[in-house]
Simulated scan of single mutants.
Amino acid sequence: MAWRCTGKSNEELISNLGDAGIFKSEQVAKAMAAVDRANYVRHTYHAYEDSPQYVHHTQV
Rank of each mutant, 00 (worst) to 15 (best):
A20Y: 02
G18L: 00
V28S: 12
E49S: 01
A2H: 03
Q59R: 11
I22M: 05
G18F: 06
S25Y: 12
H56M: 13
V28C: 10
D19R: 13
S9K: 06
H46I: 04
R37T: 14
Y45P: 00
P52K: 00
Y45C: 06
S9M: 06
N39K: 11
Y40T: 12
H43W: 08
D19Y: 07
A38L: 04
H57D: 10
R37L: 01
M32E: 09
Q53Y: 01
V35Y: 13
S51N: 05
K24R: 10
N10L: 08
G21D: 07
N16D: 03
K24L: 06
H57F: 15
A38Y: 04
W3F: 11
K24A: 05
Y45R: 13
K24G: 03
P52M: 02
V41S: 09
S25E: 14
S9D: 08
S15G: 07
Y48T: 00
V35P: 01
V60H: 09
H46W: 09
K8I: 10
H57P: 15
E49D: 04
R4L: 03
S25K: 12
E11W: 03
M1Q: 07
V60S: 07
Y40Q: 09
A34V: 03
E12D: 05
Q27F: 06
N10W: 04
L13V: 00
G21W: 07
R42Y: 06
Q59P: 00
I14C: 03
V41H: 06
L13F: 02
L17Q: 15
A2S: 04
K24W: 00
H56Q: 14
D19V: 02
V60N: 04
F23T: 05
L13A: 14
Y45K: 14
H56R: 12
I14Q: 04
G7Y: 07
E11D: 14
K8C: 07
C5D: 11
I22S: 03
K24D: 07
T58R: 08
G18Q: 11
K30A: 15
C5M: 15
Y54V: 13
A29S: 15
A38G: 07
E26I: 12
I22T: 04
M32A: 14
V60R: 14
N16V: 02
Q27M: 07
Q27A: 14
K24E: 11
V60C: 05
R4Q: 07
R42M: 11
A34L: 03
M32W: 09
C5G: 08
V55A: 15
Y45T: 01
A47P: 04
P52Y: 02
A29H: 09
A47N: 05
N10R: 14
S25W: 10
H57L: 12
H56N: 08
I22C: 05
E12C: 09
A29D: 14
Y40L: 13
R42H: 06
N39E: 10
S51Q: 07
D19A: 15
S25V: 11
D50P: 03
R4N: 04
